[in-house]
């Protein structure tokens, strides 16, 4: 599978990364190499290998529905770039174009 510059542009938009044109070109090459590396896995015959849902051999790790204390609001809001007394403040969310 080959990776195009358009693919990388789209992925960087989805990841909210703004890459200058030169970096976009470089990234296309880098990413293509990574994808090609992982693609080697396709050479393996996995017909008789059951699908794996998780790398750990564990299941049903569940917690009881019992309340525990939450963070103090001041502590929760401490690292917010912008805030008021109660809330985080962010640039206006209006519909939001993807």
């Amino acid at each position: 599978m080959s990776l195009t510059r358009q693919d990388v542009e789209k992925v960087s938009l989805l990841a909210r990364l703004q890459l200058p044109p030169a970096q976009l070109d470089a990234m296309t090459v880098h990413l293509a190499r990574i994808v090609a590396y992982v693609e080697q896995l396709q050479e393996l015959d996995t017909r008789d290998v059951p699908p794996l849902a998780h790398a750990l051999d564990l299941e049903n790790v569940l917690a009881d529905d019992t309340l525990a204390p939450s963070l103090d609001r001041e502590e929760a809001l401490r690292n917010a770039p912008k805030r008021d007394v109660e809330c985080y403040r962010v640039p206006a969310v209006l519909g939001g174009d993807f």
Partner: peptide
């Protein structure tokens, strides 16, 4: 997580890491 789901609490008082 074990934060409360109670409706109507003051903003940002039911959150954790």
């Amino acid at each position: 997580c074990r934060c409360s789901t109670q409706f109507g609490a003051p903003p940002n008082t039911q959150t954790c890491e």
